[in-house]
């Protein structure tokens, strides 16, 4: 036992505890921006890799369905083929109406993706604008926008869609766009809330005050400093909502109030397959799997993004 330990004055051997210069800059690693850091983290996550490959594949299928099937999805439906099983050139078999199921599933991708993406873009534009203005400027603007958001928030998505789609205008002009408008109208408050919260968290940060006091205008500080730092939760929510909106489109189409019959949609296929559920459940299963995989890929991407963009995972 070292005598100086229990009593008196102990000094560690200097050669073992050499003094380092105070506060030196560590330069061995390459500089990393927030996004580069998130990207580096994402790249290694299996969830992200799998979901991106799935999404890229889905987008490719939506853009070029002809690559996968030459059979037109709608015409050439022969009642003789009703509920027939798979055979050469028709891997999924036929629907109750005698249409080629594989072709319908492939062509259904387009409606789901376009409704999802367009609706998310609309929700982003409305929600981020309102949310950012309300959160940043506060005051009466915040109060008015908050009440407006509350009103739309109190109208649940499917219920609201039921009412809106009963309107003559929407009934007569059924299209992909009406579904997009209905979803955007009812879903923006959620995005506005998230944006508002994120903006409020950033707006009082010292770097915003610093920018203001070096002469950056109030709006300039919002655009240059506040918004970029408030984007992470917005991006995550947008990705997750893409999945949710695809479900919504399918649900509305399933209920008969979504895209028109002339547009291929998995929701229609599933609704039409109800009659065949006991005789040939695969007619129901194929479009269901397609829909679920599509939604799953976006939910997984959102989940991976949430982990990567979480500021808590970035502490030094």
């Amino acid at each position: 036992m070292k005598p100086e330990r229990t009593e008196g004055h102990y000094v560690a051997p200097l050669e073992e505890t050499a003094l380092e210069a105070t506060d030196t800059l560590r330069v061995e690693e390459a500089p990393l921006s927030l996004w580069a850091d998130a990207w580096r983290k994402l790249r290694r996550r299996p969830l992200f890799i799998v979901s991106s490959i799935m999404i890229l594949a889905l987008i490719f299928i939506a853009l070029f369905p002809g690559v996968f099937t030459q059979v037109p999805p709608n015409n050439e439906c022969l009642l003789a083929n009703s509920e027939a099983g798979p055979r050469e050139g028709h891997p999924f078999g036929f629907t109750f109406q005698g249409c080629d199921l594989f072709s319908r599933v492939i062509h259904g991708t387009q409606a789901s993706l376009s409704v999802g993406i367009l609706a998310v873009l609309c929700v982003l534009v409305i929600g981020v604008t309102f949310g950012a203005l309300a959160g940043y400027y506060g005051g009466w603007l915040d109060a008015v926008l908050a009440r407006l958001g509350d009103i739309f928030f109190a109208l649940p998505l499917i219920l609201g869609a039921l009412v809106i789609t009963q309107l003559p205008f929407f009934r007569e002009n059924k299209s992909v766009w009406t579904v997009v408008v209905v979803i955007a109208m009812l879903a923006w408050p959620q995005m506005a809330r998230i944006t508002r919260g994120a903006v409020i968290e950033v707006r009082n940060a010292d770097f915003v005050t610093a920018a203001r006091s070096l002469g950056v205008s109030r709006f300039g500080a919002l655009m240059r400093h506040v918004l970029p730092n408030a984007l992470a939760p917005v991006i995550v929510l947008a990705t997750l909502e893409l999945g949710v909106f695809i479900v919504t489109e399918a649900t509305l189409s399933f209920l008969g109030i979504g895209v028109p019959e002339s547009v291929m949609s998995w929701g229609h296929d599933i609704a039409a397959a109800q009659v065949s559920i006991r005789t040939n459940p695969m007619i129901l299963i194929y479009p269901s799997i397609a829909l679920s995989l599509c939604v799953l890929s976006f939910i997984m991407l959102g989940d991976a993004l949430r982990d990567a963009l979480d500021p808590k995972s970035r502490e030094r």
Partner: peptide, 22 residues
Amino acid sequence: SLVVIAVPTFVLGFVFQLVFGV
């Protein structure tokens, strides 16, 4: 849980009806 979230309620309804009911 991700898979459960991704399967829409109406799909789940039919599947459960088929499996547990039929």
